[in-house]
Design a binder for these strands. Structure first.
Lengths: 222, 222
DNA sequence: CGGCGGCGTAGGGAAAGCGTCAAGATGCGG
DNA sequence: CCGCATCTTGACGCTTTCCCTACGCCGCCG
C-alpha cells in the first residue's frame, strides 16, 4: 500500500485529495504547513509527497530542500503560480513533477502513478530473502517461524536487505529510519540491531548476517 | 554524457530542441516518425526520450508501449492536446512526464533534468579496484577474501585509490585523514600504510601497489 | 667507520565504540 | 481509565580501534 503525504493549507482541497486517494487504496497523512510537513515526513515515511507551494510558514521550495536533505521520496508539487521560473525552481530543487492549479484530479492521479511507478522498481525483484534458517518477505512484511517485527525494525531491516553486502553508514541508517536530526543517536542502532539479531540470527551472540563494522555502520551479508 | 532521443515531425521544433540540448552537452539523436523512433531507440540506447504524440505514422501512445516493452528509459511526452484524458493515457502507458505545446524551453529542460536525475542512479555499477589478487569496492566498503579494514584505514586507502598513479604528499594525507594540525605526525602514516600492505599486498614486504616515495609521500600504482 | 634522517615493525595502554540488561516514557485500543 | 506494545533513555562490562613509544633496518654523508 502506497503511503502519501498531502501538504496544503486549504482544508477543502486537502479533504478532496484525501477522499480520492483513500478511495484508490492509498494510505494518507496530511499537513497544513511546512513545519508539520517536514515533521510528518520524518515520522510517517511516505512513499510520495504531494506538496502545495503556497504555505503559510515556509516557502514550498524550502520544504523540498528540507526533504531532499535526507530522503529521495518522490515529490509532486501543486501550485497556483503558472510561471516557468517557479516550475524550474521547484523541479531543480528536487521535485519530480509540477502541476498548476486548477488541475484535473484524474490527471494528478495519473502523474502520481507515474512518479510512484518510477520510484519503486524494486518491487519487481524477488522479495524473499534468507537469513540463517529464517525467510524474510519484504513485500508481505512477514518472517517465517512466527516472528513479528515492529515498524521501526522493518524500516531498519529493509534498508539493510535492499543493499546486500553493502555497508550502510550509521548516519544514513539514522536519517532514513528516524528522520533528519537523529544522526547522533547511535544507541538507537545498537538497541534495534540487537533486537533484529535476537529475532533473526540463529546465534544472536555471534551474528552471521547482520554484521557490525565498528566505527562505520552495519552490513547485511547474504 | 546523457544521450537524448528527440522524436517529432516538425523540423523546426526538432532543430530548436537539438540546438538547446547540444548547447547543454547532451548527446542528441533524432527521429521524425514512430517507426524510426523505435528503430533509433534500439540502436542509439538513449538515456532519455522526448516524444511528440502527434506523429504521422503511429500514435504516440503506441510508441510509448513499444518502448516500454523492452526498456525503462525515461520518456517525456510533448503534445498539442491539452485534454486530461490524453495526458492520463500517455502517463499510464508508461511516460514519465507530459508537457503541452506551446511550452517554455527552459521548463522542458528542467523537467528533463528531473526525470533524468530520478532514473540515473539506477545504472550505477559497483566501482571495483584491483590490488594484487584482492578486489576493493569503495562504495560497499568491501575487500575480497574476508579482509576487513578499520575506518582510518578506509579513509587512507580511499584517498590513494581515488588518485590512481598520482603522488599524494604526506602533508595532504595527514590533514585529510587525521585533520589539520597533524602535519608532523608522519609515523601515523608508516603505521597505517604498513597495516594496509599487510591486508592488501600479496607480498607486504615488497609492496607492488602501495608505493613509498621517500621524503615525499605515497602513491597507488594500479 | 659512525652518526643521522627517513622508513618499517612490534606491542601496550587509553579511549571510543559496541552489546546487553533494565527501567522509564509514550501512544494506542479497549 | 487501564493494559499492552512500542519507543526512548540510562547504566555497565566488553571488544575494537586508535594513539604512542620503542627499536631495527637501510642509505647517505661527513
Amino acid at each position: 500500500m502506497t503511503r502519501v503525504l498531502i501538504v496544503d493549507d486549504e482544508p477543502q482541497l486537502l479533504r478532496a485529495l484525501r477522499i480520492n486517494l483513500v478511495a484508490r487504496h492509498y494510505e494518507v497523512a496530511m499537513a497544513d504547513d511546512g513545519g508539520s510537513a517536514l515533521r510528518q515526513a520524518a515520522q510517517f515515511h511516505p512513499d510520495l509527497v504531494v506538496l502545495d507551494l503556497g504555505l503559510p510558514d515556509i516557502d514550498g521550495v524550502e520544504v523540498v530542500h528540507g526533504l531532499r536533505g535526507w530522503t529521495s521520496v518522490p515529490i509532486v508539487v501543486l501550485s497556483g503560480r503558472a510561471g516557468s521560473q517557479d516550475k524550474i525552481d521547484a523541479l531543480d530543487a528536487g521535485a519530480d513533477d509540477y502541476v498548476t492549479k486548477p488541475f484535473d484530479i484524474e490527471e494528478l492521479l495519473a502523474r502520481i502513478r507515474a512518479v510512484t511507478r518510477r520510484a519503486s522498481p524494486h518491487d519487481a525483484q524477488p522479495a524473499q530473502i534468507r537469513i540463517g534458517d529464517r525467510t524474510v518477505d519484504l513485500a508481505a512484511k512477514t518472517v517465517s517461524g512466527d516472528v513479528r517485527l515492529t515498524p521501526t525494525e522493518w524500516r531498519l531491516l529493509e534498508l539493510l536487505l535492499r543493499n546486500p553486502g553493502k555497508l550502510i553508514s550509521q548516519r544514513q541508517m539514522l536519517t532514513e529510519v528516524w528522520g533528519a536530526g537523529y544522526d547522533r543517536e547511535t544507541h538507537y542502532l545498537r538497541q534495534y540491531m540487537a533486537q533484529l539479531r535476537r529475532k533473526l540470527e540463529p546465534d544472536p551472540a555471534r551474528p552471521a548476517h547482520l554484521i557490525t563494522e565498528p566505527g562505520m555502520g552495519y552490513r547485511f551479508a547474504p
